[in-house]
Amino acid sequence: MRPSTTVINGYNQFSLPKIWGLGKHASADGTKWDLHAQNLMSEYHLRYGGYGGIGYYLVSDMYIALFSRFTTCGSWEGHNILDYLVENDSDVRPDTIHADTQGQSAAIFGLAHLLGIQLQPRIRNWKGLNFYRSKPALQYEHIDLLFSKTIDWNLIETMLPEMLRVAVSIGAGRIKPSTILRRLATYSRKSKLYFAFRELGHAVRTSFLLEYLSDVELRRLIQSATNKSERFNQFVQWVAFGGGALAAEGIRDEQRKFIKYNHLVANLLIFHNVVTMSKALEQLAAEGHALDTELIASSSPYQTEHLNRFGRYALNRDRVPEPLDSVREFRMPPHGERITRTAQVAV
């Protein structure tokens, strides 16, 4: 079992993260890591400025990061968004993924649909996208002007066996979603399979956009999820102290290790913070204080004030860690209720 998997599974056993989320939603976002200009991986990023590469992370709604990838600034980030299906073998298996505009395209929507994943991104300039009718003669009251094209169901029906074969191969772990998406995009002008995925994605994305525009709670959910990703990006760069967010290595494998190890250390600190916070809540409840889940839900494990990044460290290799059963099994009060430890025991 991978070290990151062990950390995520241990984290998932605590009650506190269940206040923040249930692990069914996750958000993906990239952040720029600086690289020296004389580097095959390094590219100039127009939006962030400077030379570097992109660390791409998938963050659970429980705040723990499930997946990381290092890619170039010029690559389309959304090609990596579904790779967690192959590379994340932890107990936390989200089925709804949020992202920004870089985390979506019509082909990604189509592939995600066949893999049983709901893609719910925050799309910038959605007014520039085409809405697709299911039939040419179909008219929609009040919103008919939004629809400018029609879905080619014949193409989807013809290529469906090939599309399902791709989905099954991904589910069996034989190929990564990013590999097939990049390959299809490269040969898009000649590939009917690419056009079929894109056509299916047009149908799925049109349905999502209509829901996105009409449901304010969905927009709030997506905004909240993407905020967690952006906050994790700040936290993971804070963890890589001493280098000014610079990945100094010029070898690509070493750069990937830098991202993976930094991701692991960030998850370990998140785990440590949840243990500390759970102990504090346990103590407050034991002393008879009320626990307000509304207040707990507004907190996060990205706390840094108590962590000493600099100075000397004394390692005691003979020290036996204290058991975590009490804080792991301590049940948080139902959402919106205020109870004490005594009241909980009475129940």
Rank of each mutant, 00 (worst) to 15 (best):
P161L: 07
A203P: 00
R198M: 09
A203W: 04
K149G: 08
S178R: 03
E157F: 06
A185N: 11
L155N: 07
L200F: 01
L184W: 02
S191E: 06
I156T: 06
I180M: 07
V204T: 04
Q139P: 04
R189I: 01
I180F: 03
K192S: 13
I156S: 00
I156A: 04
Q139E: 13
R165I: 05
K190P: 05
D152A: 01
G173Y: 03
A137C: 14
H142A: 14
E162C: 08
F208G: 00
M163Y: 07
K192H: 12
L145C: 15
V166Q: 04
S188T: 09
T158Y: 15
I151K: 05
S207T: 14
G171E: 13
S148Q: 14
K190F: 10
F147I: 02
T158L: 09
I170P: 00
D152V: 02
D152E: 06
A172E: 14
A172T: 06
K176Q: 09
F147W: 01
S207L: 11
I170Y: 11
R198C: 11
R198V: 12
L209P: 00
Y194F: 12
R165W: 10
K192A: 10
G173F: 07
P136A: 13
L184H: 06
L160C: 08
F195K: 13
I143H: 06
I143Y: 08
L209N: 04
P161C: 03
R189L: 08
K176D: 10
S148E: 12
K176M: 15
P136D: 13
F195D: 07
R205D: 04
T179V: 10
N154W: 11
S178K: 00
S178Q: 03
K190L: 06
L145R: 10
S148M: 15
T186M: 03
Y187F: 15
K176V: 05
L210R: 08
I170N: 08
P177V: 08
Y140V: 15
F147T: 00
L145Y: 15
L200R: 02
G171Q: 13
R165L: 14
N154A: 13
R182S: 12
G173I: 04
S148N: 12
S178C: 10
I180E: 05
M159I: 03
V204C: 06
R165Y: 12
K192N: 12
I156N: 02
S191T: 00
L155F: 06
E141L: 15
I180P: 00
I175G: 01
P177R: 06
E157H: 11
S191V: 04
R182I: 09
L160R: 13
R198K: 11
T179W: 07
Q139K: 15
F195C: 08
S148W: 04
R182P: 07
F208V: 01
R174C: 14
I156Q: 01
I156D: 01
S188P: 04
F147H: 01
P161A: 11
A185T: 11
L209E: 04
L193A: 05
R174I: 13
Y140L: 14
M163Q: 05
L193E: 01
